[in-house]
């Protein structure tokens, strides 16, 4: 062991590193970015704080948030899942073509939706984890297949979504706290617990170092498999809330989610390639993306050039989170 000539210095450096790392690892950064953006938004748009505005903002953001949460499971273990677009379309049309009224019906539909999402996820998982096909290509294929099935079920936008889902699920708890926010908060709670269970830890471990994880006794294939299953479940939730919000089914409902989901995950600071990040961060990443739409509108950025700003913000956010992470794990080079 090297002698620590200046233990106090070493200790403080280590301490600083620990706090920075906590910041870098947790969803702290993206939460700050989100809050800053929210403040800006409220400043330029005072009506933003009205109960209705808050409710509609969260209702609108929730599907993307859930989709990004799902994608995070796969990205954390180092994979890639393009099937998000297909799964959302598929589940969305199934919900819209399976009329079930009332709270009981909504619950039954929820179970059906999640089961379907998990089934798609399981197929992805089998193909990627057990047949060992490159994830990006395999999920591209399953995405296309899901879109095809969605078109078989519903040729054009339509179908019916029960009034309970359309009106109750998108309302607010005691007229103040949108259910959408409650669901997002449940997502945070879920991840906080899940990430501390063995399954959650294994997910991160596999993402950091597949080989070491395998040699540590982690069943890497099963971990990969279940990451896709969880992802499918969350995509299904996204599709479910999308159906509630838009009160309709659309065989191409999932298409806009394809790139936005990955943008949201990246914005949240989850590393592509795995091992670092989390669902909470992605939830906030997606919320930030949707809030950005609001802020840009409020700032009156010429709509032709909205994309320029969006692109810049994405790059900056990723650079920022990388910079903090770099400072946190300021280790010796190569």
């Amino acid at each position: 062991m090297t002698d620590a000539t200046h233990p106090s210095v070493a200790e403080t450096r280590a301490a600083r590193r620990v706090t920075l790392r906590h910041i870098a690892d947790s969803a702290f950064l993206i939460i700050v970015i989100y809050l800053v953006m929210a403040v800006v938004y409220v400043a330029v748009q005072p009506s933003a704080l009205s109960a209705y505005s808050i409710e509609s903002l969260f209702n609108n953001s929730l599907p993307l948030m859930l989709a990004a949460a799902g994608a995070t499971f796969v990205i954390l273990q180092g994979g890639f899942d393009l099937s998000v677009a297909g799964t959302i379309s598929l589940v969305n049309v199934v919900i819209a073509t399976t009329p079930m009224e009332g709270p009981g019906g909504a619950l039954a539909l929820l179970a059906l939706a999640v089961a379907l999402g998990m089934a798609v996820g399981a197929i992805n998982g089998i193909i990627v984890a057990y047949l060992r096909i490159q994830a990006i290509a395999a999920t591209l294929a399953t995405m296309i297949i899901c879109q095809g099935i969605a078109l078989l079920i519903l040729k054009a936008p339509g179908g019916m979504v029960s009034d309970f889902m359309v009106y109750e699920l998108t309302a607010s708890l005691t007229d103040r706290v949108p259910y959408a926010l409650v669901i997002a908060a449940l997502g945070v709670v879920f991840w906080t617990i899940y990430s501390r269970t063995d399954a959650g830890r294994n997910l991160l471990a596999v993402g950091q170092d597949r080989k070491a994880a395998a040699l540590s006794g982690i069943n890497v294939q099963r971990t990969e498999f279940f990451s896709f299953v969880w992802a499918g479940a969350f995509y299904a939730l996204a599709a479910y809330m999308l159906a509630a919000q838009t009160s309709t089914g659309n065989p191409s409902a999932g298409e806009p989610f394809l790139l936005l989901t990955f943008a949201a995950v990246a914005l949240g600071g989850t590393a592509f390639g795995g091992g670092r990040g989390g669902v909470t961060a992605s939830l906030f990443g997606a919320a930030t993306l949707m809030l950005m739409q609001k802020v840009l509108f409020a700032m009156g950025v010429s709509s032709f050039y909205t994309g320029v700003i969006q692109g810049m913000i994405m790059i900056t956010a990723v650079l920022f989170s990388a910079a903090v992470h770099h400072a946190a794990s300021n280790r010796r080079g190569a």
């Binding site: 830890r201 991160l204 950091q208 170092d209 070491a212 994880a213 395998a214 040699l215 540590s216 670092r276």
Partner: peptide, 15 residues
């Protein structure tokens, strides 16, 4: 076969 971004304790007890 250690996971770099986990603690010593977690690594000892994996999986």
């Amino acid at each position: 076969s250690l996971i770099p971004h986990l603690s010593v304790a977690e690594n000892l007890l994996l999986p």
